[in-house]
Amino acid sequence: MIVAKPKPVEEVIESVSGFDRILLVGCNECVTVCEAGGRKEVGVLASALRMHFMNQGRNVQIDEVTLERQCDREYLEEIRNRIDQYGAVLSLACGVGVQFMAETYFQTPVLPGVDTCFMGVTEERGLWSERCQGCGQCVLARTGGICPVSRCAKRLFNGPCGGSTRGKCELSKDLECAWQLIIDRLTELGRLDDYEELAPIKDWSTERAGGPRRVEREDVRQ
């Protein structure tokens, strides 16, 4: 999923303080799972904002809605008949949802309520970690199912750097060395000899380096 974390409430307050009518929009997908922008978080943030403005003696209307997704036009359409009532939308979706909302409602300011972090997993409640950077050309078959692009701080393709110590990355004792994990897994699979194969120089044109990307599939298009 796409992992996000709530923006500091002070930052949110500053960004919405110029508006009197605000629609707070949650998303029922990834940001719900990572507890950053679902129905529950929308409710908590709305209460905090109401309290803040009340203490300031300001009458600010804050309404709440949570859509099934903000990365699909059909769900964004659900607020079309009421969008004009609001001075701004505060979206708790990931950066994708915020942008699609802004594209859909061109005349309404759309502000982000979360910081979008990465594509990752829930390791345990309250702990999420990165697994994929969407490089567009998956190498996991070669690396024991562990990604050197997203999990090695130097995205090395041919093994650990000299900083790997006791299974940890040189960056932090809390960070596992991706290549230690790869070696452990290749060993487990009886494929450690694969390690000595030199990895070809990567074609980064399918990654961010190639410019904004699109996937276009004739087999799916109608």
Binding site: P160, G162, S164, Q180, Y195
Partner: peptide
């Protein structure tokens, strides 16, 4: 001296 030691020579 870095870890994992078993792949230091393969490396």
């Amino acid at each position: 001296f870095a870890d994992p030691f078993e792949i230091r020579v393969p490396r």
